[in-house]
Design a protein around this nucleic acid. Structure first.
Lengths: 346, 346
DNA sequence: TGAATCAATGTAACCGATTACATTGTTTTT
DNA sequence: AAAAACAATGTAATCGGTTACATTGATTCA
């Protein structure tokens, strides 16, 4: 019932009458070992079912070949796509991932950071929780020179690369599109202004209004947690407004969909009465009726870029380290929820 | 630029003039060490910023305190919920996770298993890919006495616990409900009959037909990969049928939604012309119109159960080991997509 | 009071790799 | 032919914990 004994380089060395140093070198394909010896060693390793012991190496090298990933939640289409991107790069490079969810809570984010720290991750990829104010739980990493990269929900932190899209521009395009469709009273549903993504989207929205000589009105800004349920409540708030707004630009698709459903139930026609635009290009945007105009978000690419950048850094490739921000391209996808609301009859 | 030196138990021992054995024991709260000594050691550890080195322990103990998780995909609501459940239990018990996606490919599943094996996971949680036939990539774990638990998409494998719902019963209830609504020609959209979940749902569907004296017809079984796009194609197939079926029972919500959207576009009324029922209670089921009748699937609970069961096993708690299958409760959620299709006018 | 018991701590081997620094035998150079 | 250079391999210390077994000093018991 006990585990069978593991084969080690000592076993291989003994059988072949060579030293463990030679075996160790051969197994990592060190050119200093002769081809003939290498072949013998590889063959025997295969035959005896040798498996490499990462822990011995980690102990000796003081590295873990592990990357920590902290995300607000896993169960969104966007995040799981990002993770898939991270995973593909990390696996290729021989790194394993430790993934943890902060559940949008600053407290859990601190705990996650602690776990990552105690697991001695070689590097850290982070997308911040809604509620995180203070970044001091990352100081411990900085102190140990563990590189840290933020993606999507980023922050100003010394010597950190950020990978994200141009949220301001996406919001600007979206809002401008709504204006071009004839909308003048545009509600913006967003989340806590603690996070760059929401600050920037708000800024893009404002800029678009300004550039088209429309007034910015504080009452049109609705702040919540962007869940579908929050969209439902936002709809109630919107129905109280007089005059009714003629468009909604939401900071994600989820909340947009929740809001659309509730408004439809109240007899509002979309897009004729109120046009909609969301953000993320979540699959749900093609299910809701009418289909939701949105911003396509390159999640997989973002994961790949963040992981690649981190690993380059770990390998010392990133010598210049001038890259402080990596911006990925996003694009406006126009669907029925925002089309021709005022110019044409539908 | 190099990393500052780590504090070890040797440093603590030296400063306090005790042996490393005492320090080691104190840090794991061994009752054999006196309270006074413990306090000194804890305080100094705190003060000097000592961090525990997992690798030294793992090397010595021949364990990793790591659990491998192989899933078909992360980016479904269901799976990320399961993962969240697994994570909460694992974190609590001091285990870390290595998560890998097979992307529904048998080949990638084999690779993932290899990675897990080389990382020497203490245990493995698996939900099988569509295409996996052969389970021999798990033999290596069995040979090393690494416990393996399947969840949701399970298989017959010696000495393995499975955590799942009663798919047959869920399908039976769903189909019976459709029949009770007056439906007689019920299409079943499902995936490869290699996987238990689809075999069992098909069996439940057949049983319901039989119990209500309805004929089973092979042509009503549509097999695909259950994506939204596949639902779209299924709709095309359904439109070719003559007479038109009067209900669809789909093995997941995604494919149901894809199918509904396409049928609606073709002028079919739901539920009046064709009623719908899905499976999973994915959020999309409350977005599509009409809202989709479905089976609620306890993903978080499933993750918790699978992880707890595995860890019990690792701790030797699970001495009896009689539990071969853990069945979780699922429930039919009736929504507008299946209601009163034939009895009432709508 | 001497033996037995016990609480607290110490000693040292061990887990399985990596690698700086020797050592050996062979080839090239002058 | 002796010296220098080189290719291939070996020796041994090291990473930081765990734990079986030994030791020490104090307390209890008859």
């Amino acid at each position: 019932m006990t585990k069978p004994k593991e084969v080690t380089i000592y076993d291989l060395a003994r059988k072949l009458n060579v030293s463990i140093a030679t075996v160790s070198r051969a197994l990592k394909d060190d050119p200093v070992v002769s081809k003939k010896t290498k072949k013998k060693i590889f063959d025997l390793a295969e035959e005896m079912g040798y498996r490499y012991n990462h822990f011995a190496r980690n102990l000796r090298e003081q590295r873990t070949y592990t990357i920590g990933v902290i995300v607000p939640r896993l169960n969104s289409y966007f995040m799981s796509t990002v993770i898939a991107g991270i995973e593909s790069v990390a696996n290729n490079e021989g790194y394993t991932l430790i993934i943890s969810q902060s559940s949008e809570s600053a407290g859990k984010e601190v705990d996650s950071a602690k776990t990552m720290f105690n697991n001695r991750v070689d590097g850290l990829l982070v997308s911040l929780a809604y509620e995180t104010d203070d970044l001091s739980h990352f100081d411990q990493f900085k102190k140990k020179n563990v590189p840290l990269i933020f993606f999507d929900r980023v922050a100003e932190y010394p010597d950190c690369t950020s990978v994200l899209i141009d949220n301001r521009r996406g919001a600007y395009e979206s809002t401008s599109h709504l204006i071009a469709q004839g909308c003048k009273r545009i509600v913006h549903i967003t989340a806590t202004p603690k996070r760059n993504v929401y600050v920037d989207r708000l800024a893009g929205y404002k800029q678009a209004l300004a550039d088209h000589h429309l007034p910015f009105e504080e009452k049109y800004i609705l702040i919540n947690n962007l869940s579908q349920e929050a969209g439902n409540q936002a709809a109630a708030a919107i129905l109280q407004m007089n005059p009714l707004p003629d468009a909604v630009f939401a900071a994600n698709d989820n909340v947009a969909v929740g809001c659309m459903l509730a408004l439809k139930k109240a007899g509002i026609r979309i897009p004729q009465d109120i046009a909609f635009a969301g953000f993320n290009n979540d699959p749900v945007s093609t299910v809701v009726e009418p289909n939701l105009t949105t911003i396509n978000y390159p999640g997989y690419k973002m994961g790949e870029m963040a992981a690649a950048s981190l690993i380059n850094h770990l390998n010392g490739v990133n010598s210049i380290d001038a890259t402080n921000t990596i911006l990925l391209r996003s694009e406006l996808i126009i669907r029925a929820s925002s089309l021709q609301t005022k110019s044409d009859s539908q």
